[in-house]
Amino acid sequence: MKSKLMKLGGAAAAACAIAVLSATPASAATWNGSINGPGGGAGGSVKLTKESGSTSAVVRVTIIDTKKDGYCAAMRIIFDKPFTDYSYDSPKACGHQVGKTWNKDILYGSNSVRRAKLQMCRVHSDGSGRHCETKAYVENTWA
């Protein structure tokens, strides 16, 4: 009886480990979906593309402040390039259940963008006190 319980316990531990590993952010050439984090949530798409030797990104996201804490919700995208990263911040959504749409097309002159990190942020309305957490990645599939 004891060995059966130990086997069940081991199986349960393995299932928990698989659940934790599958909860890590996924990587793809295009991110479509929703994320939640400090300040609120966001939904939409971010796509990395290659055209004529240049990397471009197309951002179509809606950010929603889901907290009643007096802070705003924002999204930050960090483009991972050799030696220097470039970050872009969305407009802030301030006020419980207030949403902001972020449509941005970004063009780079080279293929050196390795990936984009998608972060959700909590920030004061004046832009200070920013706290961000990485929630998803978009990998450059042609690098």
Results as ranks from 00 to 15, higher is better:
17 A>I: 07
30 T>Y: 00
78 I>M: 03
28 A>H: 06
72 C>T: 08
8 L>I: 14
21 L>W: 03
120 M>S: 07
78 I>Q: 02
128 S>Y: 07
17 A>W: 06
66 T>E: 00
10 G>I: 11
37 G>F: 12
130 R>G: 02
34 S>R: 01
12 A>G: 08
47 K>G: 05
86 Y>D: 13
64 I>A: 12
37 G>M: 11
108 Y>K: 02
76 R>A: 14
62 T>N: 02
51 E>N: 11
13 A>Q: 04
56 S>Q: 07
23 A>D: 11
29 A>V: 09
123 V>I: 15
100 K>E: 12
64 I>K: 10
127 G>V: 11
71 Y>N: 15
16 C>N: 06
14 A>Q: 09
133 E>M: 15
19 A>P: 04
19 A>L: 11
67 K>M: 09
52 S>M: 08
143 A>R: 07
7 K>G: 01
126 D>I: 15
91 P>T: 13
128 S>N: 13
74 A>S: 15
127 G>I: 12
14 A>I: 10
19 A>H: 05
81 K>G: 10
66 T>P: 00
30 T>W: 00
11 A>L: 15
79 F>Q: 05
18 I>H: 03
117 K>A: 02
82 P>Y: 03
91 P>F: 13
36 N>S: 15
70 G>C: 11
13 A>G: 10
39 G>H: 08
26 A>W: 04
36 N>E: 12
97 Q>H: 07
32 N>T: 14
33 G>F: 06
28 A>D: 13
26 A>M: 09
127 G>E: 06
135 K>C: 09
66 T>Y: 00
69 D>C: 06
59 V>F: 06
128 S>Q: 11
61 V>D: 00
110 S>P: 01
46 V>T: 09
40 G>H: 09
143 A>K: 08
126 D>L: 15
68 K>W: 02
65 D>R: 00
129 G>E: 14
75 M>T: 08
98 V>K: 06
37 G>I: 10
68 K>E: 10
125 S>N: 05
117 K>D: 05
30 T>Q: 01
70 G>H: 11
71 Y>Q: 15
29 A>L: 10
125 S>G: 03
131 H>E: 09
68 K>C: 00
128 S>I: 08
121 C>D: 06
17 A>P: 04
90 S>D: 00
17 A>F: 07
132 C>F: 08
117 K>E: 07
2 K>Y: 11
59 V>Y: 03
141 T>M: 12
80 D>F: 05
61 V>L: 15
19 A>C: 08
121 C>L: 08
82 P>G: 11
73 A>F: 02
75 M>V: 04
2 K>V: 14
108 Y>D: 08
125 S>H: 05
136 A>F: 04
1 M>K: 07
27 S>C: 00
139 E>Q: 12
131 H>I: 05
115 R>G: 06
68 K>M: 01
77 I>E: 02
70 G>P: 13
7 K>A: 12
77 I>C: 02
141 T>R: 05
71 Y>F: 13
90 S>G: 01
71 Y>M: 14
93 A>H: 02
118 L>K: 04
114 R>K: 12
115 R>N: 10
61 V>E: 02
35 I>T: 14
38 P>S: 13
142 W>D: 15
13 A>N: 05
81 K>M: 13
37 G>R: 13
43 G>C: 08
141 T>E: 07
80 D>Q: 07
79 F>G: 02
